[in-house]
């Protein structure tokens, strides 16, 4: 009886998210404060990287969310193309600026971290470069949304752009890897990719626990923001529809 598609009804979505939003926001705030305070105040310095290791509690979660936000937009775009639920298209629109901000944070913290570690603010390292390209994709996506006036046309065009963009973003990732082997793996002991699998081996537990808490916090923050911004988009869309009707009368 209660299928997930019920939430495709805008009213139902707003009602449900209204109830969930305080909890998710509180959880986001709590986890982020816990993870970041723990990471910042109560973890030792790394023997090679000194106190810069503390940047990881922001750098890795934001990088993770930058990619996950795009993945969420991809899924939402597919749902829009297949089932044509407006909430889905609007959720993709709502997520894009969050993803873009996360990308900027990942890039900025990466550059600040790279400065003392690699001796340079910016290195054309594959990981950094592909993030920069991802940021360009976000910009194009957001710009296309805001350039088109008709909501349905905009939703259609941006979801196709999101699909094509995903393929090209992956392709760029491999192209960039081929183009420059990079410093990221060699120079940084705490590489992001290592966290998923061989955590014990690469990052000792002292660093891992607050990092995972912080990652959960960023995830909750993302969900809370997507809820809020999707509500806003739904309301804005409804308002445009009402205003258009008023003008017709």
């Amino acid at each position: 009886m209660s299928s997930i598609w019920e939430y495709a009804n805008p009213k139902k979505f707003i009602a449900t998210t209204d109830r969930l939003l305080p909890w998710v926001s509180a959880l986001a705030l709590g986890l982020m404060v816990l993870g970041l305070v723990w990471g910042f105040f109560f973890t030792p310095d790394d023997f090679r990287q000194g106190s810069t290791v503390k940047i990881i509690y922001i750098h890795v979660p934001s990088a993770m969310m930058a990619i996950n936000a795009w993945a969420m937009m991809l899924v939402a775009s597919l749902v829009w193309i297949v089932r044509r639920h407006h909430v889905s298209a609007l959720a993709a629109r709502a997520a894009a600026p969050i993803g873009a901000v996360m990308t900027v944070i990942a890039l900025a913290t990466g550059a600040i971290w790279g400065q003392p570690m690699w001796g340079t603010w910016w290195e054309w390292d594959p990981r950094l470069t592909s993030f920069l390209i991802l940021f360009l994709f976000y910009l194009g996506y957001i710009a296309l949304w805001s350039a088109i006036e008709d909501d349905d046309t905009a939703a259609d065009l941006t979801s196709i752009l999101c699909l094509v963009g995903s393929v090209f973003a992956l392709l760029s990732r491999y192209a960039v890897n081929f183009w420059n082997q990079g410093l990221h793996q060699g120079a940084s002991v705490l590489r992001a990719g290592a966290l998923a699998g061989d955590t014990e081996e690469r990052v000792s537990n002292v660093f891992a626990t607050p990092l995972f808490i912080s990652m959960a916090g960023f995830l909750m923050l993302f969900i809370a923001l997507v809820f809020l911004r999707t509500q806003t988009e739904i309301r804005a869309r409804r308002m445009r529809a009402l205003l258009a009707r008023e003008r017709m009368q």
Partner: peptide, 10 residues
């Protein structure tokens, strides 16, 4: 400087 500025910016 690096740690504080990255926390502040983020």
């Amino acid at each position: 400087e690096a740690v504080l500025s990255s926390y502040a910016i983020s």
